[in-house]
Design a protein around this nucleic acid. Structure first.
Lengths: 228, 228
DNA sequence: AACATAAGTTATAAATTATAACAAAAGTGA
DNA sequence: TCACTTTTGTTATAATTTATAACTTATGTT
């Protein structure tokens, strides 16, 4: 990495950092290239040397967010790898919520409204989304395959047609991944993700006084259901 | 209603209608007062006779959306009132998803990202949110109180602290509403709402081929869990 | 018919994203 | 050291946006 490339990277990082700060103040759509430039003590058009346009900056922030979330989950999974799979999964799911609350803007970027005219470049975002899902799937594999936990009874009644169309692209890469685990992973992820989304968007607070406690209890209930 | 008020109402409705169309094309943040005026064949500032500013128009659209969703749920609940409570609830939940898919913009307005600088006027939106929840709660009351269905076993283990802080403002209005029903309602609503949100924001399609079938099956599983 | 109110107009201010044209700085090689 | 190239910044400008001010025209009432 040349000297120039190094400084360029520093500038890029500063732009992204200020962008995140701005959005933390005024919401994901309050991103203003001009305001970023102003805050950096440079003129507006200078930013276009680093990002082709507003969408390019957004895409970079989204990719960063995916990676940051995935890293947080992986770190937790690794840290609790020697505990029971139930405890490990619980910690990973708690990290999921913790990360969302600590990085509301990044969470909204990934999982919130599609941005204005912005069309996410799926070739960039799809693999990142998979990385988020991977740690959870890993723990489930350990629980059901290595530790031979029984699959919950309700799985026997899933229509074949439904099972066949589940996570097809994921199973192409991992053909030996049991369909039961895929289903449990999807259902579980949706359950907890739905709760977090509602909390981030302030729809849970009117109904639940203590979201943290509620979340904890729902995790336990979910894992009970899954026979974990 | 005077003649003038009537015409004024027509204009307001036209503005909102065009606003919804525009957002359907370019996303919730693509709303442009100027573009609306242009499409109506009038100058931009004329719109300010009808809405104080952009946020006022957004608030009106959000309130409309809440009412429209609530009306759709109530209509379904009434139409299936003579069926079993399980069937009735199922139909209401199916209507919930159907409405979301048919009105993605309205759904995003209600449940998506907080809009740019826009701060929802909670005195306007909070009661509307309650109206959405009411039909579901009504069916649950019928099932557990009138039809004397047993509460699911897991309810016995909910920490008292958690129960106490559940839907406090709702229970102030309806003090005789059992806590069990409130909990079941919240958990159930979060479960299905989470799924719909993910589908509307295109995060379910990469994992589930046939979201309609998946949703149907998850409703059944949820109602099994709730002993309905 | 005179008047008041409502509803529209144009003009303008202050932002925004983005492009063009140009200037200065930084790095490279003879 | 000097000339050249590339990178990085600048200012000027175009085309938008939201929103306000001042003015005009239409509508309804007395």
């Amino acid at each position: 990495m040349t000297r120039r490339e190094k400084f360029r990277q520093i500038t890029i990082d500063e732009i992204k950092s200020i962008a995140r700060l701005q959005m933390a103040e005024g919401g994901t759509a309050s991103l203003s290239l001009n305001a970023i430039a102003r805050q950096m003590g440079m003129s507006g058009p200078a930013l276009y040397r680093y990002f082709e346009n507003r969408d390019a900056l957004l895409t970079a922030l989204i990719v960063d967010a995916y990676h940051d979330l995935a890293a947080a989950l992986e770190e937790t999974a690794a840290r609790f790898a020697d505990q029971t799979s139930r405890e490990c999964l619980k910690q990973v799911l708690l990290t999921y919520r913790r990360w969302a609350l600590d990085h509301p803007v990044d969470f909204q970027l990934i999982f919130g409204n599609p941005i204005p005219g912005y069309q996410a470049d799926e070739t960039l975002t799809a693999p990142s989304a998979g990385k988020v899902f991977a740690p959870i799937l890993g723990i489930l594999e350990r629980a059901y395959r290595l530790e031979k936990r029984a699959y919950p009874a309700f799985l026997a009644e899933i229509p074949a047609q439904l099972q066949a169309g589940l996570a097809v692209s994921l199973r192409e890469n991992q053909p030996d991944l049991p369909r039961e685990i895929v289903y449990i992973g999807i259902v579980g992820w949706y359950h907890i993700h739905g709760m977090i989304m509602l909390e981030i968007f302030h729809h849970i607070q009117p109904l639940v006084n203590d979201p943290a406690l509620f979340y904890q209890y729902e995790i336990e209930r979910l894992m009970d259901q899954m026979n974990l």
